[in-house]
Structures are given as C-alpha cells and as structure tokens.
C-alpha cells in the first residue's frame, strides 16, 4: 500500500511541512487530536479569553472526525473525516497559535489557505466514507476534553501509518482546484 508515500511523525516541524507539495501521499505516525465544529468553537473561545487549551497546539495535527462508538476490543469504531469547511471559521486562529496540520475532506476557504501559507501549515485529505478502513490505522483513542460532546469530544489518537494526501501545501497549492482543472471537460 502506497509504496511512494512519505512517512512523517507528529509533532510536525516547519521543515516537515515545507517539503510537502499537493498530491503527495503521506503516512502519519504518532499522535493526532480530534475536533469538529463544536470543539473548535470552544478552543477558539479559550484562545480569545487567554485560557489554556486541553492540549498544546504547536506542531500538532487536528483530525476532523467524530468516530462511531468503539465496539468491545477496539480503540474506535469507524473513523473517517468529516467535511472541513465547517471548521474554516476557526482554523486560522488555531494555525496562528502553532497548529501545523489538519486532516479532513473537502476544500478550504481563502482565509484558511492564507493562514496555512503564512504560518507554514498543511491540509491533508483523508478518504471520506472510508471509516472502517481508516480505523485500522488508529492504535488508541482517549477522550481528553469535552466528553459531554459525545462523538464531538476531543480525543487523543495514536496512529500508525495513517494514510492521507496533501490537499493544500504551504506554497499555495490546492489539489481540489488543480485536480478538477485537469479533468474538467468544457462543453
């Protein structure tokens, strides 16, 4: 699987992400933090009020996912990405505070792309709807904040060779735009 993939370990350094370009296949190893809209709202409110976050953002990667419940003997159920545009309102602030990577599905808005370029962060696409397959790369999951949010709680995931594709790089590249441009047929 993915013989040409680049293997990276979190936390990611500036050098790790500046060497990536759109379309690169990457296997992520180490720790990912999960957060969806509801958790993002709280994280941004904490940053605005100067309070400490439930985890240190620097060099970290946030995975936009709300896993299905873990059946007995498994760390999580299905765990594919959710649509990323719902996090666009919050992402630039997290990037300014050191977030190095995001994993989701679907395109980002200009404000997020500009923040990624300025502060050297990348956006990875995981395969939406491949939740059973993706879960195989997750070794452990632990709720570290907001358990009352249920599937939207913040989790600390340990992952091994978690497969993603670079969708937006620090150089301004956007695979969603370029990929579609390559295959579109005008009438």
């Amino acid at each position: 699987m993915m013989p040409d993939a680049i293997v990276l370990h979190t936390p990611l350094s500036e050098h790790d992400v500046t060497s990536l370009t759109i379309g690169d296949r990457v296997l992520l190893n180490g720790v990912l933090y999960t957060a969806r809209d509801a958790a993002h709202k709280r994280l941004v409110e904490l940053l605005q009020s100067g309070g400490p976050l439930p985890f240190d953002l620097s060099g970290q990667v946030i995975y936009y996912v709300g896993p299905s419940p873990a059946p007995p003997g498994r760390p999580v159920g299905a765990a594919g990405p959710t649509t990323s545009y719902r996090m666009d309102a919050y992402a630039p602030m997290l990037i300014r505070h050191g977030l190095r990577g995001m994993i989701g599905k679907g395109a980002r808005n200009d404000a997020v792309k500009e923040a990624m370029r300025q502060h050297k962060a990348v956006y990875f696409a995981a395969i939406g709807g491949a939740g059973a397959l993706t879960a195989r790369s997750i070794l452990s999951a632990e709720v570290i904040a907001y358990p009352e949010l249920g599937p939207e709680a913040v989790r600390r995931l340990e992952v091994k060779n978690f497969p993603v594709i670079v969708a937006n790089d620090v150089h301004g590249g956007d695979l969603y735009e370029e990929g579609v441009r390559r295959y579109a047929r005008t009438a």
Partner: peptide, 14 residues
C-alpha cells in the same frame, strides 16, 4: 472499506 465493514461488522462510515 466495504469489505472490512461487512467482514468485521463495523460501520462503513462513522
């Protein structure tokens, strides 16, 4: 993914 979901009886999508 569909094969894993069916074989292991976990949802194909979260």
């Amino acid at each position: 993914n569909a094969q894993i979901a069916r074989d292991e009886k976990i949802p194909m999508c979260q």
